[in-house]
Design a protein around this nucleic acid. Structure first.
Lengths: 220, 220
DNA sequence: CACGTTTGACTGACTGTTCAATCTAACGGG
DNA sequence: CCCGTTAGATTGAACAGTCAGTCAAACGTG
């Protein structure tokens, strides 16, 4: 496996190019079916170069997974900042996980999560990452709740406890949606999640009858 | 790939032996890292024989996944029948998913679920299976709720809606537990799930202060 | 014998990784 | 401004190991 080239500001562009390509491929074909040659082709490089940068296939794919996860949460955090009301922010969170509006930046699609989990289950390095990222995710939820409470939109509840439950619920719903469960499609998932939050947080109910998921997609 | 030997009552024992072996291996090493030779060794057979029965590696592994899933739900259904009270039955359901008491029959462990999901995401055949099994799972929940309502233990709620949410919640929690989230271990997951059910169903709270997960593990 | 089962040995293809060689660009002194 | 040097980037081709799947032969039992 030799020594892979260290990450420098110069090669970072290439690196990212490869990580993205890898993430895409993993998403399409799955972790186990993603070949170095494919990644190389999509990143417009040679197989040898890919190894030159990542040293090993495993590292490449695992790094790609972690990279995607990172971006997914980073983007979510950024998005959140642009939305004012508690309900809208909750709505954004829910849509972010259950209604994949392709952000163009990262293929935050579902195949990635499944493979990420499968990898994390064994690879302690990935497991560690995931735990930290998930912590951040929960913190985001907590912050939304607390902000909502400060504004008087949300009643008195244990924000942390809510976050734990809500995060788990979102994960579970996203699975159903990703696996095309006939009873739990995007809309249903959105509704279930928002109903839960509404009930649990003592949130003012949705203003209009716009329970359809796509409602108010664009916030700008 | 030729023609695989058809399933007959005779060879079923061998078949199952291989399916179990495969499931174990998948659980330990992951779908992508499970070699035919390994399965063969664990099943005390030759690689050629494995192919003789399943025709192809993919079929073997996928069948193993489906087999495990089946058993998981079958066993759960059977277990449920032995428990009387609504709360106890809910508790069993929760423990069944979040607190793996190794049943010895199938390695119902989590690595399997992750790989199952990852496979289902692409393989429509697996996807179909999963949807059906999940339907059964929800029906189990619905039945528990309705029985509880008949007994007066559970208030007036939409059983189906509850089942959808609860199932998703359980999936999400099981992920955290499987991935060793420091904030959501077995006990915490159990508590979260049961609290949710209690709240949501208007269930009488746990009799004693035995919130610890292991409480009342053995039902017999 | 016939038929389902079982196997060891084989292979053919795939693919991760190595390697030696080229290419590019920056650098620095003359 | 030129050119020798250097370090990183890049590649095509070769290597080596792995492993799914084939095959023909043996086994054993009804």
């Amino acid at each position: 496996m030799a020594d892979m080239a260290p990450a420098t500001p110069n090669n970072e562009a290439r690196r990212v190019q490869m990580l993205r390509a890898a993430a895409e491929l993993i998403c399409e074909r799955g972790f186990g079916e993603t070949r170095i040659a494919d990644v190389a082709k999509r990143a417009e490089a040679s197989s040898a170069l890919v190894i030159y940068y990542f040293g090993t296939r495993e590292r490449l794919l695992v790094d790609a997974l972690r990279y995607s996860e990172q971006n997914f949460y980073d983007a979510a955090e950024q998005m959140l900042a642009t939305v004012p009301s508690a309900r809208e922010r909750l709505s954004l969170l829910v849509r972010w996980t259950c209604v994949p509006e392709n952000d163009g930046d990262v293929p935050g699609a579902w195949g990635l999560w499944f493979d990420l989990w499968a990898q994390a289950f064994r690879h302690p390095e990935v497991k560690q990452d995931r735990v930290e990222l998930d912590g951040r995710w929960r913190t985001m939820i907590v912050d939304v709740v607390k902000a909502g409470q400060a504004d008087g939109d949300i009643g008195k509840v244990d924000a942390r406890a809510f976050a734990l439950t809500f995060a788990a619920l979102l994960d579970g719903l996203s699975i159903q949606v990703a696996l095309e469960d006939p009873e739990v499609d995007r809309d249903a998932a959105y509704r279930i999640a928002m109903d839960f939050a509404t009930r649990e947080l003592g949130l003012a109910p949705a203003r209009r009858k716009r329970t359809r998921a796509a409602a108010g997609a664009a916030t700008a």
